[in-house]
Amino acid sequence: MITRPDDLPEEELLLSGTRSCAGCSMSLMYRTAIKALGKNTIITVPASCLTVLHGLYHKQSVLVNVIHTTFETTAASASGIVAALEALGLDEKITVVGFAGDGGTSDIGIQGLSGAAERNTNFIYACYDNEMYSNTGTQRSGQTPYMAYTTTTPHGKLEHKKNIPMIMLAHNIPYIATTCASYPLDVFNKFTRAKQFKGTRYIHVLAPCPPGWGYPTHESIEIGKLAVRTGIFPLYEIIDGKMFLSKESEPYLDPRKRLPVADYLKKQGRFKHITQQHIDTYQEYVNGQWDFISKML
């Protein structure tokens, strides 16, 4: 486990000059994650912002093997890579990782993900969650939070976010983690730890999106940290079914230490229309989420 920025490996597998937006936290998350994964990795990516980051034919902005797959088939594609590596006797040497967005994971891709996890396919599935279909112009996804504006929920989404990590827990897989792009050391450590397990490993990364969420590009790190400090997005690991709260989230088990959700919501354009009643509903939801977590620990 590393604890300081300069402990991160110097070698960059993400090459400068990518096609991602300024201040994109997915780009930061990806840069950090592939440092942990290393070159002996085959990554599979569905239609998503990450496809754009990888660049237009015939150039690529990363130094790892990538198989682009269709929107709903990240985990199926990974299953094929894993089976091929097993057939070739290379599965111990090469790590297989699926990187998909929140829509590709929790909506269109959940069937393939569930199937691959049920088969305990030997791969890491990482969902970078920007809480909307950012790549197609910010439409509502199953990960869009309550009351967030998207182009298809112009008055705010009426439902809460789908809890994918808990759905993955129901698949009895050996490793589940949540992390946030704003904490690169945590991202690095969790991908490093995931690599040590065999079977399906699931990592859910909150990845704030400046154009989609409506905040200035320089605030990407701060917004993600506020999601953690308000308790909206708890960071934890679940190892063989047992939950461990990550140190970034540990203080917020105590409700008095959590910042009010309004501190997070009011910094983002996507929530600018919300009322005090909505904020109260949101706060209740977050409190309930922690009641559940406290029972899991």
């Binding site: 090459l15 400068s16 096609r19 990888h54 034919y57 690529q60």
Partner: peptide, 14 residues
Amino acid sequence: AAVQHPTVGEAGKT
């Protein structure tokens, strides 16, 4: 087939 190869500055200079 469309096969891409690693390049610094894929999207060009800022």
